[in-house]
């Protein structure tokens, strides 16, 4: 009951947060001319012909708050404007490109977190030993490798040197035809998930082959970060009095490290992991471009390059909502991981 109340309270808190975010995003549009802002209200190509009519209809020369109310009304109706980059409504573009990015994020995020936590824990437990040094070097390398360089290198090796072993794109030509056939139902447009739901092994294998290199590329940098964060957090935990007590009680060192120290050390990692997932779900521009894995990052970058205002604002709004929701999930996870975080009033 207490937990449900907490969720409801947090959801209610989202309203003022989203109000502030949308106010800010809409405020940015005021820097553009009424004609450019009119494109925010366009939902079909036909309407592009009558921008003056839209300016009049939506009162784009009226006071800011009146315009804001009109715009937010449109947003609630799902009309985020027209994306000239991909010739479709922005809301549809988000739904179109999100699955590719989500697929990348859903595979990469757990990988990043698990590897980061595992090696971060090992490094802290064996501080100044070879494992610690090795993870430190791995972290430095991972952190310092430019994504575009690593992506191209991986592609040259695993697609070039190993002759097409791990290709770019999302699916091969043959499998693209299969997933677009009437026999294959695209429940989510996440290829791996759809392949499982359709019990289609070849599509699943093909989708996984195409996923591996982009996942490795975006994971390399982020694993390094999580690893270092986990290590320092673990070292702090291992220095606490209750760890000394646990050891003094003669507990097995593995239990001390994995149960007592690691659980407390996870809090900052959970925080960062939440934002990491949100950031990845917003698209990895360079990775998506190099591997022709066209998702949110590719769409957003193309929109920015083309000064496609409705798309850029739609993307910004999507990211804002995503971050707010992820923040909520992270806060809920805190209550599960750290008993000191009370549902009513934070840390007591």
């Amino acid at each position: 009951m207490e937990f449900r109340a907490y969720i409801i309270r947090r959801l209610l808190l989202l309203i003022p947060v989203l109000f502030g975010v949308t106010l800010f995003i809409f405020g940015i549009t005021m820097f553009f001319s009424p004609g450019q802002r009119a494109t925010l209200y366009v939902s079909s190509p036909q309407q592009m012909r009558d921008l003056p009519g839209i300016i009049e209809q939506y009162g784009l020369d009226r006071p800011f708050f009146v315009q804001y109310a009109t715009w937010i009304g449109q947003v609630f109706r799902g009309n985020l404007g027209w994306s000239t980059v991909v010739s479709m409504p922005v809301a549809k573009a988000i739904l179109h490109y999100l699955p590719a990015t989500l697929e990348l994020a859903l595979v990469a995020t757990p990988l990043i977190i698990l590897i980061g936590i595992f090696f971060g824990t090992k490094a802290a437990a064996q501080k100044d030993k070879p494992v610690d040094h090795a993870t430190r070097v791995m972290a430095i390398l991972g952190w310092s490798l430019p994504t575009f360089w690593l992506g191209l290198l991986l592609m040259m090796v695993f697609y070039g040197y190993f002759r097409g072993f791990l290709p770019p794109g999302r699916l091969s030509v043959q499998m693209e035809v299969v997933v677009n056939s009437v026999d294959f139902i695209r429940y989510t447009r996440i290829n791996t998930l759809d392949a499982i739901l359709n019990l289609n092994g070849p599509v699943l294998l093909d989708a996984l082959r195409h996923l591996i290199l982009p996942v490795i590329t975006i994971s390399t940098v982020n694993v390094a970060f999580i690893m270092r964060l986990m290590r320092s957090s673990m070292l702090e935990s291992l220095g606490k009095g209750y760890i000394l007590t646990a050891r003094a009680k003669g507990l097995d060192e593995r239990i001390v490290v994995n149960k007592h120290a690691r659980r407390n050390a996870l809090i900052p990692v959970i925080t960062v992991s939440g934002y990491l997932f949100a950031a990845l779900a917003g698209g990895a521009v360079i990775t998506e471009t190099i591997f022709s894995f066209k998702g949110m990052g590719w769409w957003a970058s193309q929109s920015a390059l083309r000064l496609d205002i409705p798309s850029v604002l739609g993307f910004a709004l999507f990211m804002a909502v995503l971050f707010v929701l992820v923040n909520l999930v992270v806060d809920i996870l805190y209550t599960r991981v750290d008993p000191r975080v009370r549902l009513g009033g934070g840390v007591q």
Binding site: M156, Y159, G160, G164, P167, S172, F291, S292
Partner: peptide
């Protein structure tokens, strides 16, 4: 868009 991808696709027969 990426030249390396196109080149490798050609050399791999894709």
């Amino acid at each position: 868009d990426e030249w390396t991808s196109r080149k490798l696709a050609l050399l791999n027969g894709d």
